[in-house]
Each structure stands twice: as C-alpha cells, then as structure tokens.
Amino acid sequence: MAIGDAITGGCACGAVRWRAVDRGFRPYACHCKGCQTRQGSAFALNQQVLVTDLATEGAAIEGTCTGSHGATVTHVACRSCMTRLYTINHERPEIATIRTGTRDDSPDLVPAFHVWTSRKQPWIALPDDVPQLETQPSTREGWMALVLPA
C-alpha cells in the first residue's frame, strides 16, 4: 500500500463502514490501562488518519472519557454491535485514531512502536528492534514526530 491510497474498514456486524486516505501515519500498540479496559484486551493497535480524510457510513454512537494522559477523548462505535472504530483526542482534533483491527487489511499491520509499556501485561514480550516508550510523548509535537513517517 502506498501513501495516498485508500484504507477501508468497518465494524463486526457490517452496519458501519469507514474509508480514509493513508497519509503514512505509523501503526502502533498502546498498552495503557485505558486501552486495555476499553478494548477488553492487553493492548490496542492504533493508527492515525486525518479527520478530513475519514468518511463513515452507517449508524455510529459517540461517548467521551479522559485518556491516560489526561486529555478528553471521544470514542466512536457501531450502534448495533458496539465495535469501537476510532477516537478523537481533543488535544489533536484534526486527527482520528482508528482501531486498526477494524481495517480490512489488519492482518498485514505490524506496530512500528509501543507506548505505555510501563503498563503492559507482564506476559507480553516485545521485539527488541521496535521502539518502546514507558508512557507517551507529553506534547503534540512529540506525538506527531513519533507517528508521522520518517
């Protein structure tokens, strides 16, 4: 897949579909307690897209919470099956964070880095050659430097 290509995905029941432009944002694994709890798993696999490049079809619902770094985060999910599709962090409102497990090509994705490793489950072994951050960058600039392509 090349930068500028379309990426697509949707919920488990098929009631909501999304489409975005791949701008080269790197997929990553988040091991924070919030992702563990809201995903019902050991971590979340995420990737950013520009909100202006993201289109959804179908009935979705929204809810907000406070994220691990203290920011307000809006979660968007399918109204029917409750699959979490993406979030918008209010500190970076121009960027949506899609749950890459909802991508049609999700088996092809590998995390480029891991954040919140200080909270990862102890039985998870991370590859030594992939960057690992104990928390996450504290500034918008630091975050964008991490997720944007090199």
Rank of each mutant, 00 (worst) to 15 (best):
F43P: 08
R19I: 12
G67K: 09
A12I: 10
A60H: 15
E62T: 14
R92I: 15
C32I: 11
I95Y: 04
V21A: 05
R84H: 12
R99E: 03
V21P: 02
H69G: 03
I95K: 01
V73C: 02
A15W: 06
R79G: 05
P27E: 10
T74A: 10
R84N: 06
G14E: 10
K33A: 07
G24L: 05
Y86R: 07
R84E: 04
T37D: 13
T100Q: 07
V16M: 04
I88W: 01
D53F: 00
C35N: 10
D108F: 11
F25A: 06
C13P: 13
C13R: 10
A96K: 08
H31K: 08
K33C: 00
A44T: 05
Q39A: 11
D104W: 03
L109V: 12
T83W: 04
A96W: 05
S68H: 13
A44W: 00
H69P: 00
R26F: 00
E91A: 14
A20K: 01
E91V: 11
G101F: 04
G70M: 08
T83N: 04
Y28G: 03
A12E: 09
V16K: 01
Y28P: 04
S68V: 12
A42E: 12
V49T: 08
T52R: 14
A15V: 04
V73L: 08
A96S: 06
H75L: 11
T97A: 06
Y86C: 04
T97S: 09
A71S: 15
Q47C: 07
S106P: 01
A112H: 14
C81G: 06
R103Y: 04
A12Q: 14
C32D: 07
T100W: 03
L50P: 01
I61M: 12
M82N: 08
R23F: 02
P111I: 07
C35A: 13
G34L: 14
G70S: 05
Q48M: 14
T66F: 09
T97E: 02
R26Y: 00
R26N: 00
F43D: 02
C13N: 13
L50W: 00
Q48S: 10
R99Y: 11
R103G: 01
A60I: 15
Q36K: 10
G34Q: 14
G58W: 12
T66Q: 11
E57S: 14
T87P: 06
G70V: 02
V16I: 11
R84T: 06
R84W: 09
T72K: 07
R79I: 02
P27V: 08
M82D: 02
A60F: 15
Q48L: 15
L54K: 04
A55Q: 15
G34M: 15
W18V: 13
A55N: 12
E57F: 09
N46G: 00
Q39M: 15
G14I: 11
H31I: 03
T52F: 05
G24T: 01
Y28I: 06
A112P: 06
T74G: 07
F43T: 09
S106Q: 06
T74F: 00
R17W: 04
D53P: 02
F25W: 07
I98W: 00
C30A: 03
H90Y: 02
W18G: 09
S80M: 07
E62Q: 11
T52D: 13
V49M: 06
G70A: 07
A71Y: 10
T64K: 00
G14S: 13
H31Y: 07
T83P: 05
T64V: 03
I61H: 07
H31N: 07
T72M: 03
L109T: 09
L54I: 10
F43I: 11
Q48F: 15
